[in-house]
Simulated assay, not measured.
Amino acid sequence: MPAPAIVTLALSAPRDPADPITAIYRQHHGWLLRWLRGKLQCADQAADLAQDTFLRLLTAAPASQQPLREPRAYLTTVAQRLVVDHYRRLSLEQAWPETLAHVPELTAMSPEERLDILQTLHRIDAMLDGLPAPVRSAFLLSHLEGLSNADIAARLAVSERTVQRYLVQAIERCIMLMA
């Protein structure tokens, strides 16, 4: 997520009032903010995600792009993805203290080292996002639980060959997103 100063600067920079993005912002910001408040039950988080939604619109659209035909549908899609990412990060952050309690080696690490591990988990989670559930499960069972392909196949009720395909698919996605 970009630094708050950059977000504020990008959205507060003077723009042509006839600019389609400016018009969308003026017409739909309040609606999007209310929609996000209903989803998140937190005005501050809603404001942050509304800002991020318009930042995505601002950075994704060339200046010459035609106005969106269905701006609310577009904004809802982008905002919904940001909400999912928000809850995924929250879930990881809530699971982190439990992990620390079960792995004493982690508590001996410095706060910076633990933060690096948590940030790495966020990146891995983002890389695996979008994969079908069985592919993601096979990858996690293999790399986090250390299960063999045969054990994964039994747990997922698929063949070992399918497990191998799943693992290749997950690794290809990680490589693609890292490049």
Results as ranks from 00 to 15, higher is better:
1 M>C: 08
3 A>I: 15
3 A>S: 15
3 A>M: 14
4 P>W: 13
5 A>R: 10
6 I>N: 07
6 I>W: 08
6 I>V: 13
7 V>P: 10
8 T>N: 15
10 A>V: 11
11 L>V: 03
11 L>W: 09
15 R>M: 09
17 P>C: 08
18 A>D: 14
20 P>R: 03
20 P>M: 02
21 I>N: 04
22 T>I: 02
26 R>W: 03
27 Q>P: 08
27 Q>L: 12
27 Q>T: 09
35 W>I: 01
38 G>F: 05
38 G>S: 07
39 K>E: 14
43 A>I: 10
44 D>K: 12
46 A>L: 00
47 A>R: 12
48 D>R: 10
48 D>K: 12
52 D>N: 14
53 T>I: 07
53 T>R: 09
54 F>V: 04
54 F>I: 01
57 L>C: 03
59 T>G: 05
59 T>S: 12
60 A>Q: 13
64 S>E: 12
66 Q>H: 11
67 P>C: 03
68 L>C: 06
68 L>Q: 06
70 E>P: 01
71 P>D: 03
73 A>G: 07
73 A>T: 10
73 A>V: 06
78 V>K: 06
79 A>R: 05
80 Q>M: 13
80 Q>L: 12
81 R>S: 12
83 V>Y: 07
86 H>N: 09
86 H>D: 08
87 Y>M: 03
92 L>F: 04
93 E>R: 08
95 A>E: 14
98 E>R: 13
100 L>R: 01
100 L>I: 08
101 A>P: 04
101 A>S: 11
101 A>N: 12
101 A>R: 15
103 V>I: 15
104 P>E: 03
113 E>V: 05
113 E>R: 07
114 R>Y: 02
118 L>H: 01
118 L>K: 01
119 Q>P: 07
123 R>Q: 14
124 I>H: 13
128 L>W: 02
130 G>W: 01
133 A>F: 05
133 A>V: 08
137 S>R: 08
138 A>V: 00
139 F>E: 01
140 L>M: 13
145 E>P: 03
146 G>A: 09
151 D>I: 11
152 I>W: 00
153 A>L: 11
158 V>E: 01
159 S>Q: 13
162 T>G: 00
163 V>A: 00
164 Q>R: 10
165 R>L: 01
168 V>D: 14
168 V>M: 15
172 E>R: 10
173 R>K: 09
176 M>S: 15
179 A>T: 15
179 A>G: 15
